[in-house]
Every structure is written in C-alpha cells, then in structure tokens.
C-alpha cells in the first residue's frame, strides 16, 4: 500500500479538526477528497505532507510513518501541488520546474545539464515545451498548473498530493489538467486531490473520500458512494445524479437543485 491513513486525529488547540480519518491508496489510484468548506481537507493534506503533527493515529507512506521519514526521503515519496502559485519573481518555466530538484541536490549544488534536459523532456511530454524560457507569470493558469505538475514529476515522487488542482482554471483547462493527471496515474502514480466539483470525482477518481466535520462519511468507488443522499448530507443542498453517454463511455454526473415550495 502506497499510502495508509489510520484513525487520524488532529486538533488545533482543543477543537478536533480531524476525528479519526482512515483510508488508503494503492499505486495508480486517484483519490478524490470531497467535502464542504471547513471539512478538514486542507488539514488532512497538511498531515499527509508531514507539516502538522497528528494527535493520534498515523499516516504511513510506503509502509513507514511520515514522521520517521527524513525531509528528503518524504520528498522522494510525496510531491505537493498547491492550489495556486503566486511566485514573487518571474522565474522561467524551466527554472520553476527545476526547483523540484530541491531534495535531490545538495545544498551547494546546481542542476546538471542532464537534469535540465530531463526537465525539458517533462515539459514536452506535458505539451508546454515551447514555454520553457517564458516567465511563469506570463503563462495562463492552466499552463501554470501543468508547470507545477512538471515540477512534481521531476521530484520523482510516487504520490502526488494536489489541493484543488483546478480551482482557478476555466472549463477547458481544468479538463486538460485532469486528463494529464489521469494519464499519470495510469503510469503508476498515486494521486490524491481535493475538489469542490463532485462531477470531477465521478469522472476521474478511482475512489472517493467524503469528509464532513473532520469525519469520513464514505470511502469507496465513486459510483457506489456518491449517492444523492450522501451528496445532500455533504453539501446541505438537494442533488440529483444521472448518467450521460459521451462517446462510448457512460459517466455519472450530478447537479444541485432548489426544492420547489408547495
């Protein structure tokens, strides 16, 4: 098991934010974390990344507790992709990707030519090779998200932790980014992403973790777990689920609606 979270409890002061969260992820899985604002998604991610010390329970990466990993060893297992990227300086896309080598390079090292070539290869694979020497403030939000994906890839970690990877993207760009993520997990990466869009969970997740008030309401296959009842109890609004045929595949989709008053 690549990632194993068992009975995780975390609290800021007296208030428990995570109240016994358990789930696991294998290689190649894509776990969507769904939940309303304040459900504890970001706190969960911070615990996964070892930024926060849990009160109880454990997070195991590749069979070992997060706290037993050295900072560098953890970076070789987990890569983090933030929700938005707000750099202070206009580094080029290539330089930004190379920053992912932080754990592999010693304190006094600079990237080698081979590593630069590897970064360019990754950019080409992501379809943004032409932007390599462009400033990272001068590309679109979708391209920037792909760039961050590239940075995570050169880090050589097996698991990608993504905090709302498409939150600030338009419809087309979020589709393109999610397609990339799907392709990556087919290549062996485990992906854990949070999202406010249940349709993304239907469409891209192999499993769904539904969080509310720090508790797991459900964990399992999207088709089985994401019932109208669960979605309503998650978000507090009535939700209808139906099926759509797109090409040769059938997808579940959902939409919220207002209950008509009699």
């Amino acid at each position: 098991m690549q990632l194993e979270v068992s009975d995780l409890v975390f609290s800021y002061g007296d208030e428990d934010v995570l109240k016994g969260v358990s789930f696991c992820a294998d290689r190649g899985e894509r776990i969507a974390v769904l939940g309303p604002n304040g459900a504890g998604k970001s706190t969960l991610f911070r615990c996964l990344l070892g930024f926060l010390e849990p009160k109880r329970g454990s997070v195991k990466i590749a069979g070992r507790d997060v706290r037993e990993h050295s900072r560098r060893a953890l970076a070789a297992e987990l890569a983090y992709i933030p929700q938005s990227y707000s750099p202070a300086f206009d580094h080029t896309v290539l330089d930004s990707v190379l920053m992912g080598l932080g754990a592999q390079l010693g304190p006094f090292d600079s990237p080698t030519r081979a590593q630069t070539d590897a970064a360019l290869r990754i950019l080409n694979e992501l379809g943004i090779g032409a932007l390599a020497s462009r400033g990272c403030m001068r590309i679109s939000g979708g391209e920037r998200q792909l760039m961050l994906l590239g940075r995570a890839l050169i880090q050589n970690a097996h698991t990608l932790v993504m905090d709302e990877p498409t939150a600030s993207l338009d419809y087309g760009n979020s589709f393109r980014v999610m397609q990339r993520i799907e392709a990556l997990s087919a290549g062996g990466y485990s992906v854990i992403f949070s999202t406010h869009e249940p349709n993304q969970a239907f469409r891209y997740a192999t499993k769904v973790l539904a969080l509310k008030d720090g508790q797991v309401l459900a964990f399992g296959l999207p088709g089985q777990v994401l019932t109208p009842e669960l979605l309503q109890s998650l978000y507090g609004v009535p939700v209808a689920v139906t099926q759509v045929q797109a090409g040769s595949r059938v997808f579940s989709v959902c939409t919220p609606y207002a209950q008509e008053e009699n």
Binding site: R46, L49, F51, R71, R72, L74, A75, A76, L78, A79, Y80, P82, Y85, S86, P87, A88, F89, H91, D95, M99, G100, L101, G102, A103, L105, P107, F108, D109, S110, P111, Q155, V161
Partner: peptide, 27 residues
C-alpha cells in the same frame, strides 16, 4: 555564492519548499 541555486527555493511558498525536502528554517 555556493548556496546560489538553492536561494531560488526561498522564493516559493514555505509549504512548497518544505514538500520538496528543503529545510527552510536552516536555509
């Protein structure tokens, strides 16, 4: 001078740098 490349890693957010295995406090 020898830390020159690593200084780049201080220009991104602390959470990101830490997730890349950088000891930001020490740096």
């Amino acid at each position: 001078f020898f830390l020159r490349w690593r200084l780049n890693l201080l220009t991104i957010s602390e959470a990101e740098a830490r997730s890349m295995g950088v000891n930001t406090k020490l740096l």
